[in-house]
Computed example of a mutant assay.
Amino acid sequence: MSGLRYVYALCRPLEAPLQAQLTGVAGAPAKPLHHHGLVAVVSEVPEQDFTEEALRAHLEDLDWLAATARAHQGVIDALTVVTTPLPLRLATVFRDDSGVRSMIESREEHFRRTLDRLTGRVEWGVKVYLESERAEESEAAEAAEERSAPKAASGRDYLRLRRQQTRASEDLWQRAETFATGLHERLAAFAEESRLHAPQNATLSGAAGRNVLNAAYLVPRDRSEEFVELVDRTKDDAPGLRVELTGPWAAYSFAGELPGEGGS
């Protein structure tokens, strides 16, 4: 290789080969780099696109960023089919193979412990949304009630009406949060580990509705079907709510901050 080394993930030696035509970032083939019984999955990327200065410029180019993220995730997804990968952050690069090997050696015990904990497990994501239509209906009903109600005889009457409307809206949010809390407790009891993430911002995610649960669950691969069925059974208990299940993924939420990310 003559370019920089882009590192997607670390894993144990593969029991099955990677897809023959698996390509990663910049269209380069992804290849295993063996060192001390561990494997870094790498590809060659052009230096002019992955120096620190070039990456700063690329971060302003949303099309480039999206294409790179898709290619990166494609390699991680392929690895997840055949092994348990520890995915590194987007655009983790090193000068050469020696740099990658040095990174492995510097954190070898950490990598081995983390792989021991995660081997045979996958991550499932569960999100619960209060449907935007439901919230809008509640707000519209409040506005209609206010328009049709007799004009308040006093400021006290007006404040009482507003409190009633506010209470109805709060009840809607409370029911959604109560459902989400109960669902998380059931799923966390099934999973080996769980993580609660901050609710997604609808403006950034583009998802409809208000996100009231954004969680990840670490589940043994051979129990994934049971987990999926458990989530599916809850959907009928959630009128006005949308339950979304994603996965199985590499265990991003449970790998911790992998040392050595960022490269050189």
Rank of each mutant, 00 (worst) to 15 (best):
A40C: 03
D116F: 06
R56N: 14
E225T: 13
V219G: 06
M1F: 12
A57N: 06
A152E: 01
G74T: 05
L245Q: 01
L79Y: 09
S154Q: 11
P17R: 07
A91E: 14
G260M: 00
A191N: 12
L4Y: 10
G74R: 12
E145P: 01
S102V: 10
T83G: 10
R134I: 09
G240D: 07
L22N: 06
R107W: 15
G3F: 02
F179H: 13
L159K: 03
L22C: 08
A40G: 04
R210E: 07
E142V: 06
E193D: 15
A20N: 09
G256P: 04
T80L: 04
S264H: 09
E192I: 12
H184S: 10
D116N: 11
A144S: 09
H110S: 09
R89Q: 13
L10D: 08
E192Y: 05
F227T: 04
K31N: 06
G99Q: 13
L59V: 12
G240Q: 10
A191F: 00
D237I: 03
P13N: 14
N211W: 04
E229P: 06
R147P: 13
G27D: 02
D96Q: 08
A16N: 14
L204V: 14
G37K: 02
A189S: 13
C11L: 08
K235G: 05
L18N: 02
L62R: 15
E133W: 03
R223N: 06
V228G: 00
P150C: 08
F94V: 07
Q48N: 10
A250F: 01
R95F: 10
L10V: 10
T68H: 03
A30N: 03
T83M: 02
L18T: 05
A149K: 11
Q164G: 04
R121Q: 14
E244Q: 15
A30H: 02
D232S: 15
E142N: 11
G209K: 01
A208F: 02
G260I: 00
D157N: 04
D116V: 04
E139H: 08
R101S: 05
H110I: 11
A57H: 09
G3Y: 06
Q48R: 01
A168C: 08
A140V: 05
L10Q: 13
A40S: 10
S205D: 07
S194Q: 11
A67C: 08
A40D: 01
E185M: 09
V7A: 08
P259D: 05
H197M: 10
V231W: 04
G27A: 03
A69R: 13
G37W: 07
R89P: 04
D222I: 07
S102K: 12
R89W: 11
V45F: 01
L115I: 11
K151A: 15
S253H: 07
F111C: 14
E52P: 12
V219A: 02
G37S: 04
A250V: 03
F111V: 15
T83L: 02
E193F: 06
T23E: 03
A202H: 08
A215I: 00
G24Y: 12
E131W: 09
R160N: 14
